[in-house]
């Protein structure tokens, strides 16, 4: 589904990704771990197409297409979803409007009919129940005045509504207490399916207690230095990142 080959990218002239390669197949959950500054968030933003993240070489192929050639909104319509590390507050645009506009943009792209207000609300209310969100959230401004946990839940709600093929969750666990983490994890787990791939970008092993990954990759210095199964995450938790970095440098 996703094939990243020897990806180099920089931000403000500063090289961040230095030859990252990764293959992700449908149905798989990949955790990408690494210390601060290793390039985790840069990878997430490059995949979503954010301005200011400049790819200098390498390639990213998504369902057979050149992902880097697509505008951010095209990527979203093709089924790429980024759950933001810091979801932005947009007072004045209500959640319901954003969700409906986003869902209908995706549906139109897939050749499906747009949902009317009733159909839309039926879909959204079901997913909100899943995320333990009150319906009053719909009429509030996007993330406006939301707590950290509410913002992250709102990201997963959007993911649940948009049903992407490839979801990239950028530090979705950061800033969550254990109850909120469980809700978010349950939401993500409910979206696991044989035709959907999920990339979890995280600093901590904790999230992986609740969302069990098929693969764990350690990112250091802008490339993957080690790949293993979920036991690698536990090992990292125990021994810290220095251990992998030293091993990689040796």
């Amino acid at each position: 589904m996703l094939s990243i080959q020897d990806l180099h990218a920089r931000v403000d002239e500063r090289p961040i990704l230095n030859g990252l390669s990764l293959d992700v197949n449908p149905g798989e959950v990949h955790a990408i771990m690494g210390p601060n500054g290793s390039g985790k968030s840069t990878l997430a933003n490059v995949l979503a197409g954010r301005d200011g993240y400049e790819v200098t070489s390498g390639s990213v192929t998504y369902v057979g297409k050149d992902l880097l050639d697509m505008a951010p909104e095209e990527r979203a319509r093709e089924g790429v979803f980024l759950a933001f590390q810091y979801p932005v507050e947009i007072p004045g645009v209500n959640n319901a409007y954003l969700l409906k506009a986003a869902l209908n943009a995706v549906r139109t792209h897939r050749g499906e009919a747009e949902l009317d207000a009733f159909e839309f609300l039926a879909v959204v209310k079901e997913k909100m129940g899943l995320m333990h969100m009150d319906e009053s959230f719909l009429n509030r401004g996007v993330n406006e005045g939301f707590s950290g946990g509410e913002k992250k839940r709102n990201e997963i709600l959007q993911m649940a509504v948009l049903e992407p093929r490839l979801a990239v969750l950028d530090e979705t666990d950061s800033g969550l207490d254990i109850d909120a983490l469980k809700v978010v994890a349950a939401g993500v787990n409910s979206l696991r399916s044989p035709d959907r791939a999920i990339i979890l970008v995280t600093h901590y092993q904790r999230l992986l207690d609740y969302i069990e990954p098929d693969f764990v990759h350690v990112l250091s210095g802008g490339k993957i230095v080690r790949t293993g199964d979920k036991t690698l995450a536990l090992e990292l938790e125990e021994r810290g990142y220095d251990w992998v970095q030293e091993a990689a440098n040796a």
Binding site: A76, V88, A102
Partner: peptide, 8 residues
């Protein structure tokens, strides 16, 4: 960018 990333 947030809006674009949602397909808008």
């Amino acid at each position: 960018f947030y809006l674009l990333s949602r397909g808008i």
